[in-house]
């Protein structure tokens, strides 16, 4: 029993960054904008959070670290918003570019923090509870508020939303920046709470898993909680079983990625893609069908 509880606790702990990043991606996708840059925004958030918390020689400000990480993620997302919403470029390719820039810039500017320990770090409890609360909040936002309805209409049928007097571009910008801020927060969880340290490449594909998770949970914030815990459990098992069984560790290392493909295939089999917002990935241009 104790073993099960322990496993669940670790799964929650590891699932938290996934959940936060997934909710961010879900938010901007519901408004019709795909952002594949989650991995890059997480890296930037992780670095910004760590840099502020560490300061000059370990005397930084822990309270400012989290807002700094969210600011970094939000600013990076703003770039994606400008290129895809204002300049109407391909959202998938722009997100890919954002991943490259985010990982690259974080790797460069983070060099001086490499390997430094953070002695004073925040507890994980508030983050875990906060992430679950955020999922409930988003579920409420989408199902019971005017803002949620406006966001959803902009994602389903921007032309009709525009006709009703909604500001499509502003709503999309807002959703994209908020999504980026959450990706930054997810990164900060890694560098402030989970690890607490900074290393280049510490996001290790988590951002991509978060993007896939959005499809897996059918764009539903409540289901995202279970999806994230499920993947968290998988990571726990990966560490737990490594070295104990005769199975090579490389099999475990590639398991999350294989599982992403598997869950995407299962989502396809169940026709999950039908849940996608109708205008997802399409730039909105007034006066065009």
């Amino acid at each position: 029993m104790e073993e099960v509880l322990n496993a669940l606790a670790r799964a929650l702990s590891f699932g938290t960054p996934l959940l936060i990043a997934c909710l961010g991606a879900l938010l901007n996708e519901r408004a019709g904008v795909v952002n594949l840059g989650v991995e890059g925004m997480m890296a930037l958030g992780a670095l910004a959070g760590f840099a502020v918390a560490y300061g000059e020689g370990g005397n930084g400000n822990l309270w400012l670290a989290v807002p700094a990480a969210m600011l970094a993620g939000g600013l990076a997302a703003l770039l994606h918003g400008f290129v895809t919403i204002t300049l109407q470029a391909n959202q998938f390719v722009s997100g890919l570019a954002l991943s490259m820039v985010g990982l690259g810039v974080a790797g460069l500017l983070g060099k001086r923090y490499e390997g430094l320990p953070l002695f004073d770090h925040p507890p994980e409890g508030p983050f875990i509870l906060g992430a679950i609360g955020l999922a409930l909040l988003l579920a409420f936002l989408f199902s019971a508020t005017r803002l949620g309805l406006a966001l959803r209409s902009v994602g389903e049928n921007p032309a009709a939303a525009d006709l009703l007097g909604l500001n499509v571009l502003a709503l999309r910008y807002g959703a994209v920046v908020a999504g980026g801020a959450l990706a930054g927060l997810a990164g900060a969880y890694l560098s402030l709470v989970y690890r607490p340290s900074w290393t280049d490449g510490m996001t290790a594909g988590l951002g991509w898993i978060a993007v896939a998770l959005v499809i897996f949970v059918g764009w539903n914030p409540l289901r995202a909680i279970f999806g994230a815990v499920f993947f968290g459990l998988l990571y726990y098992l990966q560490f737990r079983l490594q070295g104990q069984s005769g199975i090579p560790s490389e099999v475990f290392a590639s398991l999350p990625y294989l599982l992403v493909i598997l869950v995407l295939a299962l989502s396809g089999l169940r026709g999950q893609q039908g849940n996608a917002p109708e205008a997802l990935g399409k730039p909105y241009r007034r006066g065009e069908r």
């Binding site: 890059g40 390719v93 570019a97 490259m100 820039v101 985010g102 690259g104 810039v105």
Partner: peptide, 9 residues
């Protein structure tokens, strides 16, 4: 990576 990403953008 920075070069690649910025050029792509």
């Amino acid at each position: 990576d920075v070069f690649s990403g910025v050029m792509l953008f």
